[in-house]
Amino acid sequence: MFGVLFEQTADGQRYIDWLLSGLGWTLALAFFGWWIAFGIGVVVGVGRTVQNRFLAIPARLYVEIFRNIPVLVQMFLWYFVFPEVVPSALGDAIKQIPPPWASFFPALLCLGLYTASRIAEQVRAGIEALPRGQIEAANALGLSGYLTYRYVIVPQALRLIVPSLTSEVMGIYKNTSVALTIGLMELTAQARQISEATFQTFTAFGAATIIYLCLALIAYQGMMLIDKAVRIPGSAPVKLSADADLAAEVQQAGALPNALEAAK
């Protein structure tokens, strides 16, 4: 059934090359977007928990704005609107960027900043779940606010939220498909293109679906490994609040073993 993927395309490649090139863009977008998101997410998440208003209010605004506008709309804002509202010299420079990158960079920025707002909320939940005594002990030892966050709070909070970050990893690679609306030929776009070129819709979408399932499996397994690697010896995982715990479990559940069964 997947034979058509190995047929020649009009441009002398095989259809599977289209798919693989799409996968490449998807992975690049997800990978680099993730690190942007993680970096900003941790900073903003910490900002949500500090007393200082000059940090807490911008952090809160960041989360509110980026979490409450659909990814697709944000994609359009970065792609269509951003070059128009910055000084025209910069805007013109942006418009000079050649094709795949002209879509890639706005998509990267969009997914990175959007996912950061979601990670920030996870980080905040992780920090708020820590026992109060940890901060008191750090204070009693004379650690400053920065040192307390750097060495005591953030390392523990990040360990706590590894399971719920799994869903953010899966979220960002799924959201890469939104980049097709601004012309990036990522995996879903390539599948659609193959379907239109060959009329083998079932094969084209089927192949893309299987690739996405594999990515889900890899993401899940990878996060399990990380969870195991950073688990503190001798300790049971600390529970988040019942409500957040349920949410984390919901996000985490269903990827696997269900994904395994589906792949059978």
Binding site: A140, L143, Q156, I232
Partner: peptide, 27 residues
């Protein structure tokens, strides 16, 4: 001023030695 708490409040992600070394090194 050193303080010892009822609930210990050791840092669970650091080893025993690291718990003792953190503040002297950083502060």
């Amino acid at each position: 001023v050193g303080m010892v708490f009822q609930s210990f409040n050791l840092f669970p992600h650091l080893t025993v030695a690291e718990n003792c070394m953190l503040a002297p090194m950083k502060v």
